[in-house]
Amino acid sequence: MRLLVIIPAFNEAECIDQVINQFLITCPDVDFIIINDGSSDDTANICQRKGYPILNLPVNLGLTGAFITGMKYAYLNHYDAALQFDADGQHPAASISEFEKYLNQGYDIVIGSRFVTEKKPRSLRMLGSNIISWAILITTGKRLGDPTSGMRMYNKRMIREYATQMNMDPEPDTVSYLIKRGALVKEIQVSMQDRIAGSSYLTTVKSLIYMTRVTISILLVQRFRGGNQLHPEHISVDRKEQTI
């Protein structure tokens, strides 16, 4: 399976080198591409000096625009799988082989979850996460412990959807839409690290707005989207496990 790791980066000069170094040590044989989302700092220079593969967006498109750029690259270069990977060192590269294992079993999306075997802590942000989980559960019947996790691996037909369709975001509401259309989703336990430096796309102030937008989108908007039903391509996945 040819895997592309997509690393969106916006002003990550402080940690990008360390993160890519760590990534190269852990998975030296995996293709990756950095999508520089119009950073105003040294992100592009550092990557070019080190010879890392990088696509430079001339303007800031936001996480969705940057990620879709990577998906288009994956689509045009006929990759079989694509993984969204944070440039700030939160995602563990060591788990990548396990993601691939489940994708090979026939799952369409594998999500790296913090809360499959671990318990969810109680905090305001986790309350938001719970509300999104609940919205996905009542609209799709699928229980996701960590819907906002950004570490997701997609198979070939998901890459095609992301590269060619409108309104495809690397966000929980799009995942719920894809589940409704028949995509098979698997959550696996990963341990996320604290970010090395810089600030997240989601500041605490914005997370409330984010939570509201995603929940309304899942409950009211996503169900009215069109799109043909996806059928499982491999039968090796146990459908029963899917609904648990």
């Binding site: 409108m166 309104n167 975001d169 509401d173 937008r213 908007v221 009215f224 989207r225 069109g226």
Partner: peptide, 11 residues
């Protein structure tokens, strides 16, 4: 939305 002419954030 069905005709894919409206982005969800605006919808």
């Amino acid at each position: 939305i069905r005709k894919k002419r409206l982005k969800i954030q605006y919808a």
